[in-house]
Each structure stands twice: as C-alpha cells, then as structure tokens.
C-alpha cells in the first residue's frame, strides 16, 4: 500500500536519505530500525509530506503522492505521531485526540469508542490538559491522535522510546491491535528488542540507506 522508490532527501543541503526504497503492505506492521541520525525520522517526515524529496517517488495506495502537501496526504488516510509527541499543550486530552477527526469531519463518538478500546487508560483523563500528563500517557495520546481520522496507514516515530517497561508493553500491544483493524503501521525505533514480537518486518537503516539487519550491530 505504501512504496518508497529510491527517494533522496536533503536537510540543509546535506543528503540525509540516499536512494531509499521500502514497502509496507496492507495490515502489516513494519519497523525501521537504526541508530540516531540514521534517517528514521527523516523517512517518516518525508512520507508524511513535511520534508520534500529531491528525487524518487512515494506511492500510497497506487497514487503518486510525491508532490502532495502534508495536509493532502492526511486526507488520503495517513496518520502521524511525531517524535517527542508534540501534543497541543493547552488543549485537553480529548481535544488533542479529536483534532484530526474534527478537521476531517468524521464521527467523534465512533473515534472515541475505537481509541478508548485500544487505550482504556485514557478514558478518565479526557479533560486534563495535555501538558499535565505523564510522558507515557502523552505517548498514548499521540498515538491515539494519529488514529483519530480513521487512517489506513499510521506513521509512529519512536512511540516506545523512553517509556517504563509496563507502559511500553501496553503501548506495544495497543499498536499490534491496529493490525487486527486492518490498519498498516510504519514505525521507527532505535532498538529492535522491544518490538520483535509485534512487527512483521524490519528495515535496517544506516546513514540514510537500507542495510541488512546484521550490519546494524
């Protein structure tokens, strides 16, 4: 459903991604694993349309989206949870989660049902301000927000990074449930150990290029 074909991305004129190709299939959980600065976040941001690609093609559901803006790609069904959560600090939890749903105009009750089924612990937090939540709860809100507009593909940038083990496994099982709903997941992690059980495939990435997993260690 998602295909990157030899994309090249520069940041401040420095090449960060080089001829990078990868694929994500329907209802598949794929993880990009690599050290810091390898280009994981850049890959995700390029797919979302935040960073422009210099050359190469990004195809989503058979459509060439390479020249589309982020807000247009969102409308095709891509959800995004950025690195470091980046919630709206002055918005309540529920306003954060429902933000994309309200932009698209989808049924809010339906969204709430789905999100709280996956993250029941957010249910009694809905009216707190996002900035008052703990780090783990904020990550959940960020993932929940990425799901709000019924996406077909969600991009999760280091969703498990820096979480306590209990919270981490809760969030990981939440992510694996997405697959059962027919949602594809592309996530980035710097460490493959926590996600081994939930992912279908792993891409190793190093210095902006796809490498064999063995090459990472």
């Amino acid at each position: 459903m998602l295909k990157l074909d030899k994309i090249n991305v520069n940041i401040a004129k420095i090449p960060v991604l080089r001829n990078l190709s990868m694929e994500v299939d329907e209802a598949e959980i794929v993880c990009i694993v690599g050290p810091n600065g390898a280009g994981k976040t850049t890959t995700i941001r390029s797919i979302m349309g935040i960073l422009p690609v210099i050359s190469g093609k990004i195809v989503f559901e058979g459509k060439d989206v390479t020249s589309m803006k982020a807000h247009e790609r969102f409308r095709l069904g891509i959800g995004y949870a950025p690195e470091d959560r980046r919630l709206y600090p002055d918005f309540t939890v529920i306003d954060n989660i429902l933000f994309p749903a309200r932009i698209l105009g989808v049924d809010e009750e339906e969204v709430k049902r789905r999100v709280f089924r996956i993250f029941p612990e957010l249910k009694d937090q809905t009216h707190r301000l996002a900035m008052t939540l703990s780090g783990g709860q904020q990550k959940m809100v960020a993932v929940a927000r990425a799901l709000a507009a019924n996406p077909k593909l969600v991009l999760l940038d280091e969703p498990l990074e820096g979480l306590a083990p209990v919270v981490r496994s809760r969030l990981a099982s939440g992510i694996s449930e997405l697959k059962d709903e027919g949602i594809s997941v592309l996530m980035a992690e710097s460490n493959a150990t926590h996600i081994k059980d939930i992912v279908d495939r792993i891409y190793g990435i190093k210095r902006g290029e796809i490498v064999e997993m063995e090459a990472l260690t």
Binding site: A70, H71, F74, R75, Y80, I103
Partner: peptide
Amino acid sequence: MIIRATSFDKEVTSSFGV
C-alpha cells in the same frame, strides 16, 4: 481551534489535514 493549533505547531497541524 485550528488557529491555536497552528500557532503551537505548524508542521504537526499540517499533517492533521490543515
């Protein structure tokens, strides 16, 4: 809501369809 969201974070807000 859209204006306030944009003032917090343009990038993220644009990836939510704005």
